[in-house]
Amino acid sequence: MPGEQQSVRALKSFVLPAIGGRRPWRPLTYDAARMMFNRANEVLGSNRTLHDPRHTATCLMSDDPTMPPVYVRHILGHKHLSTLDIYSNPSRDETIVAGLAQHERQRRQRERPPPLPPVPASAKDRRSPSATLPSSRAPIAPISSPVAETRRLRSTDAE
């Protein structure tokens, strides 16, 4: 486990002093984290910033289909959901695959539409309007307006 020991030594020398590895314990401030990144950049010969891990985490959350974008927006503290568009950079191949998958879903839905929802039990128990009429009367056609219904009721009361 030599690689693991080397990682622990690097952690102790760069990270722990910045986050309070020295006594007295103190919270990690922005300036302390920035200095930690600067020291690591000098050793590694890189040019990373403190914003890079935030950007990486945002890209990973945005690409996760189980993570709603509104939660990503809230975690980042952005005011508008449209701000997340800068983190969404699908490749040409990903866009083509997503488009083909959408067309396939639409084709399957056209071939096999979803089944109709079951009829509620209360609707099955309802009797038809003609079943409530006396047998001497013919069924009345459906009423098209409240005015016609009122006229029909008045003519029935007059009889």
Score class of each variant (00 low, 15 high):
Asn38Met: 13
Asn41Leu: 05
Val43Leu: 14
Asn47His: 10
Arg48Leu: 15
Arg48Cys: 14
Thr49Cys: 00
Leu50Met: 07
His51Val: 12
Asp52Val: 10
Asp52Gln: 12
Pro53Tyr: 06
Pro53Thr: 02
Arg54His: 13
Arg54Ser: 00
Ala57Phe: 15
Thr58Asn: 08
Thr58Cys: 07
Thr58Arg: 02
Leu60Thr: 10
Met61His: 10
Ser62Val: 15
Asp63Val: 05
Asp64Gly: 05
Pro65Cys: 04
Thr66Val: 15
Pro68Gln: 09
Pro69Trp: 15
Val70Asn: 12
Val70Gly: 05
Tyr71Met: 11
Val72Cys: 03
His74Ser: 13
His74Tyr: 14
Ile75Thr: 09
Leu76Gly: 02
Gly77Leu: 07
His78Leu: 10
Lys79Cys: 12
Leu81His: 09
Leu81Trp: 10
Ile86Ala: 05
Ser88Leu: 15
Ser88Ile: 15
Asn89Trp: 03
Ser91Asp: 01
Ser91Lys: 03
Ser91Cys: 02
Asp93Ala: 15
Thr95Phe: 02
Ile96Cys: 05
Gly99His: 14
Ala101Glu: 08
His103Phe: 15
His103Val: 12
His103Thr: 11
Glu104Arg: 15
Arg105Tyr: 01
Gln106Asn: 11
Gln106Gly: 04
Arg108Asp: 06
Gln109Trp: 05
Gln109Glu: 15
Arg110Cys: 00
Glu111Asp: 07
Glu111Ser: 03
Arg112Gly: 01
Pro113Trp: 00
Pro113Lys: 06
Pro115Asn: 06
Pro117Tyr: 10
Pro118Glu: 10
Ser122Val: 14
